[in-house]
Write a protein that binds this DNA or RNA. Structure first.
Lengths: 159, 159
DNA sequence: TATGAATCATTCGAGAATCGAACAATGTGG
DNA sequence: CCACATTGTTCGATTCTCGAATGATTCATA
C-alpha cells in the first residue's frame, strides 16, 4: 500500500512541473526573441501551417483564446508579411488564413529553435531517460485532458 | 549514436513541460482560490515560514522579484492578519516578517491543497512511476540551475 | 421572399497589472 | 560631520487584457 510520503511526493512533482514549465517557456521565449516573435505568435504560425485556410474564430476556439486577442496576433503577423488574410468566396464573413513563403520560412527557424531548445533543456538525460520522461508526461497530459500541441497559456483567465 | 528523431523528441518533452507546467499552475491557483490566495501569496507565506524574521529585500532577492511587488504582496497578507511586520531594533530600516497564528493555520491548508492537487495531477501514475518522474524532473531542474522551491514566476520579465 | 437571429472580424474604452524612478528613513564609512 | 548605500514605500506612466459594442455577412424560418 502507499506510504505516508505519497502526498508529499505528488506535491513535489506538481511543483517541479510548474517550475520547469515556466522555465521552459521563458527559455523558449528567449530563443525566438531574435526572430521578433513571442510564443503566442509562434503558436499561431504553427497552427495556421497545420490547418491552412482556417478562420480566426476557429483559431480562437481551438486555442481557447479571446477572438479579439487573435485579431491582434494575426495583425502583427500579417503586417510582417508572414500570414495572409484571404476572403472566402463561399462565406465572405470569415478570413481564411494562410502562411506566406516568408511565414513558412520563419516557421522553419522556429522549429529549429524549438529543437535546439529541447536538446538544451534535456541535456542532463540520456536518450532512454528522455523517452521515459516523454512517456510519463504524455500519460499525465492525456489523463488531464490536455489537447496535444495546445498551450494553455492562450486561455483567458477565469476570475 | 543518436538517431534523427532525437531533436524532435527533445522538443516534444520541452513542449509537454511547458504545457503541463501551465496546467499545474492554473489548477493549483484554483485550489487555493477559496482561501483567497494567489500562488504568489502562497509562496510568500511559505518562504516566511521557512525563514522567519527575514526582510522584504531578502525576500525579493530570493524570489528574483521587484521589491515594490513584494511590498504589495506583504501588504495584502498583513491586512488579512496572516503576517506581521516587526521593527528590528538593531536595524530599524528593515521589517522582520513573521507569520501570525492565523497565517500558520492558513499555510497548513495551503499545504493540504498542494498535496491534494499533486495527487490529482499524478493520479494516472503508480507510485513507482511517480518517483521515477520526480527523479527525472529533479535531474533537469538541477542541471538548469533552478533553485529548489523557488518558482520562476516571480522574476521580473526581461525585455 | 422577408425578416429577425446568429456568426465573423474588428474596434475601443475601461480596468488591472507591471515596471522602475523617485523619496524618506536609517545605517555605514571616511 | 558628510557622503553614500540600503530598506521600504509610493506613484506615475506604460503596457496588457478583457469584454461589450459595431458593421458586414449568412442562416433560419415563417
Amino acid at each position: 500500500m502507499a506510504d505516508s510520503t505519497d502526498g508529499h511526493s505528488a506535491a513535489a512533482v506538481a511543483f517541479l512541473l510548474a517550475q520547469l514549465g515556466e522555465h521552459a517557456a521563458a527559455k523558449f521565449a528567449e530563443r525566438i526573441h531574435p526572430l521578433q516573435l513571442t510564443p503566442a505568435h509562434a503558436g499561431i504560425l504553427r497552427l495556421v501551417a497545420v490547418q491552412p485556410g482556417c478562420s480566426q474564430q476557429a483559431l480562437a476556439r481551438t486555442l481557447g483564446a479571446l477572438p479579439s486577442k487573435v485579431v491582434t496576433l494575426v495583425d502583427d503577423l500579417q503586417q510582417r508579411g508572414l500570414i495572409e488574410r484571404r476572403r472566402n468566396p463561399d462565406d465572405r464573413r470569415l478570413h481564411a488564413l494562410h502562411l506566406t513563403t516568408a511565414g513558412t520560412e520563419l516557421l522553419r527557424k522556429v522549429r529549429a529553435a524549438a529543437e535546439s531548445h529541447g536538446a538544451d533543456l534535456t541535456r542532463a538525460l540520456d536518450p532512454q531517460q528522455r523517452d521515459n520522461l516523454a512517456a510519463l508526461l504524455g500519460c499525465i497530459a492525456a489523463d488531464q485532458h490536455l489537447h496535444p500541441g495546445i498551450h494553455p497559456g492562450y486561455q483567458r483567465l477565469r476570475r
